[in-house]
Design a protein around this nucleic acid. Structure first.
Length: 882
RNA sequence: GGGAGCAUAGCUCAGUUGGUUCAGAGCGUCUGCCUUACAAGCAGAGGGUCGGGGGUUCGACUCCCUCUGCUCCCACCA
């Protein structure tokens, strides 16, 4: 078969992926083998593939393919996440383009549109993952909102409710005025934001509600909330403000009288030491309000606009109102000054809207016990984090975990199974029928019509945290009495989780909680945290910056294997990835190198009658050893999740050792044949290399493995065993290295003296050069003769050292004696200095007394080697100066 | 404000309990080659006083202190 000079991935990838699918190679069923399980971090159902996914899923695929070749029953469960806020936003946006407002349609109608959207757009990302080569068990694809998994979520809610761990309460929550829902603390991002510090005069009341001449000054960043002030608060120890005790003050513009109170919360040296207390619109003020029984007046509505209770500026957006009220206060003489001020402001992770602290009734899950157990899972080492540093982050969060606000004011998601009865009681049951039964136990007269289900849905993470359990057996969460089914019993706990550190609390921690609660066991053994993919100048990839390439375009252009390499090359665990297309090019080049190395060997003619040459014998034996050595190194790297190091080891043995050294050493002269023994060994090596590369580059390796010889029907490299490391003869490798150094030395001289590689050179060796490797030198350095001598005699040439062996290339008139002398003198000087430093060390009694014998012996060896080199340089100099 | 981490070649990073001629790798750069597997290639070369300072030690890229510069996480000073 004639092969093109370049590897063409597009012809190869779809073919083999279809083959793998058709043969169900990715599918796993429980059997007697050891399981190796990964659950995919479910991407948003409406998401499209970005570089972060590429990184994550490449790593996952490398691990799963490696495990498969190690003989484990590898199962990678794919799926998607319903992502309630993100998806609902998209559906709302789409409805808008259709001229429909969410508020104008019913919940059921909305959900119909949402499911339509999901059917159209959902799962696109899973299709895209196939292009990357992801070997997911597609038969097991799950969706967090599919009926069985939704049931699991509902059951979980009921379980915790009945355990007394879920409660409903009015709390100050983080309100997203764009998404119109509460979000959890973790979904709020604090960003330093430029704003202003408004200093306002509040006049003291005369007791009849009239302002006196006296006033105090408060400092606030939110003047638009003054109408909701319930008090002015000062620190009880602040003597400056003692005169205010028992006084009342008048809120500007609306002339409302409020008391002055005292609370330790107020910092004396911040602002003016007087704090306006607005219990409805600030979390701390709410706490103060609770302590002092202050009335709560809400003047901002769900959309972030002032309502009629504000009395003024009704209907204005909070930020517009801020500017307008500042002007009004200025006109009324209440504005003292405005300072520039930068302070951390909370933004919604999803919509980037400024979070409005808002009182509302929400559902909460108690975290204390769950967090304590989950902390122990990691502290005890049962779960390992890679890199380890994230344990600190994890511990800190777990020790300070707040109760989890699990309700969301959305429609897309699992609806909270709480039913309100006319008498105000609440029943929580998995179904409406059961709820009715429960209600009738309270009052037999109740009918279904009397039950009003809670309008809210559950936080998406409240379903994601069950993922490692629910993908296998959705009946288990919330039902401890339900025996795990066969899948769950076999695949749980999963082995490794690959994810980003940004969701360590959202997801990782909570999966650990759910695992401990429902399985009494951890959900995974190792968590590998990837970095964030950034562009080459360190910016996060984002749509708005337009610096994120479309992975599918890259795959199209360079091939999936190249894209995978490109991601892995720069990805040590936990470090951010600085992506640059040149890395993908490097991956493509590597594919091409592999391809061409195959093309070379495949074109050779084999002559069975030919005896194996010495060079070939040496090369084969050396590469056997080198391969074993590398296999061991690669295994070690994998065991430590050092994937990019594993890749680099493989890359180097393929490119440098196999292509540049081994193949060059055994390559027959043009038109000549190769002996059978070497040819067979070469194919064996190549196959072993393909297997090593396969987890990283699945497509090209399958293509070449299939091309090497006629395989049985249904064969695949996917299930071939990972090469195992044999004994390594380190001395043999060292001997070959000396040959390499000799060859490099001669090539260097050729380069310097501008001598063509075609011109054979005469080489003399003085010292203990291992004779076995001389044929390699002869072939690769192109020597006409190699002679081991006692001294170099009268010949002129250039010498160099290979360790302690002197090499001498005869060059005749090409030598510039002055130059050589200068070079040798420099080397001699260096060596003398080196010897001096070694001797200084050795004459240090303290060193000889304290350092381990081994270290001292090494120093003595250095001394001896150095002496021998000096001697050699001196004799060469002497010869040259003659 | 609290906590964590990082700083090694032009770039991205290794350097595993302090000790081999240990200062490395890949990429990039420079030089010479279109040598019949591959110019997406081959062969060679240069490049860092391991962020600054101090300390411990026979010995420090490695351990301690400090300074500087960056990054991330957490956080209710209005």
């Amino acid at each position: 078969m004639e092969l093109s000079a370049k590897y063409n991935p597009s012809q190869v990838e779809d073919k083999w992926y279809a083959y793998w699918l058709e043969k169900k190679f990715f599918h796993s069923e429980p059997d007697e083998r050891q399981p190796y399980t990964i659950v995919i971090p479910p991407p948003n159902v409406t998401g499209i593939l970005h570089m972060g996914h590429v990184l994550n899923n490449t790593l996952n695929d490398v691990l799963i393919r490696k495990a498969r070749m190690d003989g484990k029953n590898a199962c990678w469960v794919p799926g998607t996440d319903h992502a309630s806020i993100a998806t609902e936003n998209k559906v709302v946006a789409r409805l808008k383009t259709m001229g429909i407002n969410k508020t104008d349609i019913t919940r059921d109608e909305f959900l119909k549109y949402a499911w339509e959207w999901k059917e159209e757009h959902g799962g696109i990302i899973l299709e895209q993952l196939r292009k990357l080569g992801a070997s997911c068990d597609w038969d097991r694809t799950r969706f967090t909102m599919e009926p069985a998994l939704s049931d699991a979520v509902i059951a979980t809610f009921c379980y915790f409710y009945k355990k007394g761990m879920i409660y409903r309460g009015v709390r100050m929550v983080n309100w997203d005025p764009v998404a119109l829902t509460a979000v959890s603390d973790d979904e709020v991002i604090h960003k330093d934001t430029q704003s202003h510090f408004y200093h306002l005069k509040y006049y003291i009341s005369d007791g009849q509600g009239n302002a006196t001449d006296q006033y105090l000054v408060i400092a606030t960043t939110r003047p638009e909330t003054i109408m909701a002030d319930a008090a002015i608060c000062v620190n009880p120890d602040d003597e400056r403000h003692h005169w205010l005790r028992g006084k009342k003050v008048i809120i500007p513009l609306i002339n409302k009288e409020i008391p002055v109170i005292e609370d330790d919360y107020v910092e004396m040296d911040f602002g003016t030491g007087c704090l306006k207390v607005t219990p409805a619109h600030d979390a701390h003020d709410y706490e103060i309000g609770m302590r002092h029984n202050l009335p709560i007046l809400e003047i901002i509505d769900d959309h972030g606009k002032l309502n009629e209770k504000a009395q003024i500026l009704v209907g204005e957006d909070r930020f517009v109102a801020r500017k307008k009220i500042a002007k009004m206060l200025e006109e009324s003489g209440n504005l003292v000054k405005i300072d520039d001020y930068t302070s951390p402001i909370g933004y919604s992770e999803r919509t980037d809207a400024v979070i409005e602290p808002k009182l509302s009734a929400q559902w909460f899950l108690k975290m204390e016990d769950l967090a304590a157990t989950a902390l122990d899972s990691v502290e005890s080492g049962k779960i390992k984090f890679i890199p380890d540093k994230y344990r600190n982050t994890y511990r800190h969060w777990m020790e300070n975990a707040h109760d989890w606000c699990i309700s969301r004011q959305l429609w897309w998601g699992q609806r909270i199974p709480a039913y309100y009865l006319p008498d105000g009681q609440i029943v929580v049951e998995e179904t409406a029928e059961k709820a009715l039964e429960a209600a009738q136990k309270i009052n037999p007269a109740y009918t279904a019509a009397d039950l009003r289900q809670d309008e809210d849905v559950l936080d998406t993470w409240f379903s994601s945290w069950l993922w490692p359990i629910s993908v296998f057996d959705p009946e288990r969460p919330g039902h401890p009495e339900h025996e795990p089914n066969k899948d769950l019993a076999y695949y749980y706990p999963t082995n490794d989780l690959v994810t980003g550190p940004d969701i360590i609390f959202f997801w990782v921690a909570r999966m650990i909680m759910a695992g401990n609660e429902f399985m009494k066991d951890i959900p995974f053994g190792n968590v590998y945290f990837t970095g964030i993919v950034r562009d080459k100048i360190g910016r996060k990839m984002s749509k708005t910056l337009g610096n994120s390439p479309n992975p599918l375009d890259l795959i199209e252009k360079y091939g999936a294997d190249a894209v995978r390499i490109g991601m892995l090359l720069c990805s040590s665990a936990g470090n951010d990835i600085f992506y640059d297309e040149s890395q993908v090019e490097q991956g493509r080049n590597f594919c091409n190198k592999i391809w061409n190395s195959y093309r070379l060997v495949q074109g050779w003619k084999v002559d069975e009658s030919l005896a194996q040459s010495e060079v070939n014998k040496v090369a084969v034996k050396w590469f056997e050893n080198k391969l074993s050595q590398t296999v061991a190194a690669v295994e070690d790297h994998y065991s430590k999740f050092r994937i990019s190091d594993a890749l680099m080891s493989i890359y180097k043995i393929f490119w440098d050792d196999y292509c540049s050294w081994y193949l060059e050493a055994i390559k027959p002269a043009y038109g000549e044949a190769i002996d059978k023994a070497t040819f067979d060994a070469t194919n064996k090596f190549f196959e072993a290399l393909l297997k090593m590369v396969h987890p990283i580059m699945p497509f090209i390796t399958e293509e070449l493995w299939q091309s090497m010889e006629t395989r049985e029907a249904g064969a695949t490299i996917m299930f071939e065993k990972t090469p195992s490391a044999g004994q390594v003869d380190a001395d043999y490798i060292t001997g070959f290295e000396m040959a390499q150094e000799a060859i490099n030395g001669i090539r260097g001289i050729r380069q310097q003296k501008n001598i063509s590689p075609k011109e054979a050179l005469e080489l003399k060796i003085k010292g203990a050069f291992p004779a076995e490797f001389i044929p390699v030198v002869e072939k690769l350095a192109n020597t006409s003769s190699v002679e081991t001598v006692a001294d170099f005699g009268e010949a002129t040439g250039v010498s160099f050292m290979v360790r302690t062996v002197e090499m001498f290339v005869v060059l005749g008139g090409l030598v510039n004696v002055e130059e050589e002398i200068a070079k040798l003198e420099a080397e001699l000087k260096y060596q003398q200095d080196f010897l001096a430093s070694v001797r200084k060390k050795l004459s240090n009694e303290s060193f000889v007394a304290h350092a381990p014998e081994k270290v001292v012996a090494i120093e003595r060896k250095k001394e001896a080697d150095s002496l021998s080199k000096i001697e050699s340089y001196e004799s060469q100099l002497k010869a040259l100066r003659k």
